[in-house]
Write a protein that binds this DNA or RNA. Structure first.
Lengths: 264, 264
DNA sequence: GATTATGCTTCCGCTGAGTGGAAGGAGGCC
DNA sequence: GGCCTCCTTCCACTCAGCGGAAGCATAATC
């Protein structure tokens, strides 16, 4: 729009989005200068666009000058069809697991080469858990991740297996060893981790099969130790997973349109 | 930016936001034409801006041409400091109530003259419930709403009381009667509704007091009937509410900055 | 209390990014 | 074929946006 832009070709909209997406889980509050630098825009431009965004309610400016994401964007985000159907269907079953185990319960799907956490019920026990709703974690170090990885397309597996970051001393970073684990996951129908993502936290997870036999999601729980009641936890998970799978299959009976198209 | 705009003075950013906020709970999917009409923009302009938004991942265009809110906005929305602290603190207590009662559990705050639902655990029983996370409902017809209204500033009460919409045949629309109910709510420490929002659904709710004695939120549950176990439900709610209140007070012990500033 | 540093706000001349009417597809229905 | 609806592309006009620079406010440093 302007004559003397430093990056001709970039639309105003793209700049505005750069400002919005400058926020992330580690940067929920940004000063003007931080915002400008993270978005890669000149300070004056940032100042003006940010003011527009504040005027529209997309951002909020605190009394101390910091910008935060506005409530209107929270509203808007909730409308995104992020597995809406899956989450609604799964919700009561997750609650059942939570009631039965008192542990932290997760519902997750695969997003490219990472685990995306769709839902989380936090447990009573003081287990350190790093995931929150919306967070992405590596597949090879989480229970739900191993389940999803074990059933992912070959090219995804290849990409994940070719670079296994060490997160704790117990993270499985040897390709061959993880491959053996994945084979077991497919055979046994569940995956476990022991302090591979967070010290002091173990997990166990099972797949949620879709109508066509593919794996559409994973349900897992996080506990301080698996020693004691692995069998009990696994039973609870499997009941829930088959419940979700059954409900999903029924819901899809009238095979209309693409996923998540049930607004009415 | 352009010479021949029909509404000079409107920034590109404001137009882009108009497009985004054209989506709401009743309109999660919009065609180009719908989008243009709801945003109040010419079709060609809408087409171009929407393409920019899609390029940035803020919107997604389905195969059938419909636009929906994109996953990146979902991510972003989760970063909004919408009572982050309150929700985190309350979550385990809400789960307790849910486990104990198997009913639909709500956490809500007041937003201007409406109830804003922050959290919802759906129950097993087939009770019709209209609320979802992020939805706003009138205060006078919901349990949590009555609690929040009873403890709202006088001007808010006045505005709400001066126009009581009828939603079901049982909605309380007489000002004097609702005022008497509010007095009781303050005295008894809980509120109830009986099919005032939805036929076949009753609710009971209690306030969550903040450190300074004001009411910061309400916790409520929805059941088919209150006849049977009102006392039991009330007890569960009160335990949870005081648990949340106590945790909140402890959390605020180091009184630093404004709410929701715990990113690390 | 002067000096420096840092971060925010405002100003303003230049110009190409944005605008939207209009024309041209692409389907769907009768 | 004719008609309708909805989407896409084109293009001449021009003012909204651009961002360097100067000014301002506050806080730290000497």
């Amino acid at each position: 729009m302007a004559g003397n832009t430093s990056t001709p070709g970039a639309s105003v909209v793209s700049r505005a989005l750069a400002l919005l997406f400058a926020f992330d889980a580690q940067h929920r509050r940004l000063t003007l200068t931080q915002l400008a630098s993270r978005a890669g825009l000149p300070l004056a431009t940032t100042h003006r666009l940010a003011a527009d965004l504040v005027a529209g309610g997309a951002l909020v400016r605190r009394a101390n000058g910091e910008y935060v994401v506005g409530r209107r964007l929270w509203d808007l985000g909730l409308l995104a069809p992020v597995q809406t159907g899956l989450r609604q269907v799964a919700s009561p079953f997750l609650n059942d697991i939570h009631a039965a185990t008192q542990a932290t319960v997760h519902l997750a799907v695969r997003e490219r080469t990472q685990v995306l956490y769709l839902e989380r019920l936090s447990g009573r026990a003081s287990v350190p858990v790093v995931s929150t709703v919306g967070s992405r974690l590596p597949m090879h170090a989480t229970g739900v991740g191993k389940v999803l990885l074990a059933h992912a397309p070959a090219d995804v597996q290849e990409r994940v297996l070719s670079s296994l970051d060490r997160i704790t001393p117990y993270t499985v970073t040897q390709r061959a060893r993880l491959e053996r684990q994945l084979t077991r996951v497919r055979k046994d129908g569940f995956a476990t981790t022991e302090e591979e993502m967070t010290l002091g936290a173990c997990s166990i997870a099972v797949p949620v099969p879709g109508p066509d036999g593919s794996v559409v999601a994973a349900i897992g729980i996080v506990v301080p130790s698996l020693k004691r009641d692995r069998a009990r936890l696994l039973a609870a998970l499997q009941v829930a997973a088959s419940g979700v799978a059954r409900t999903l299959a029924n819901e899809l009976a009238p095979p209309g349109a693409d996923a998540a198209s049930r607004s009415r």
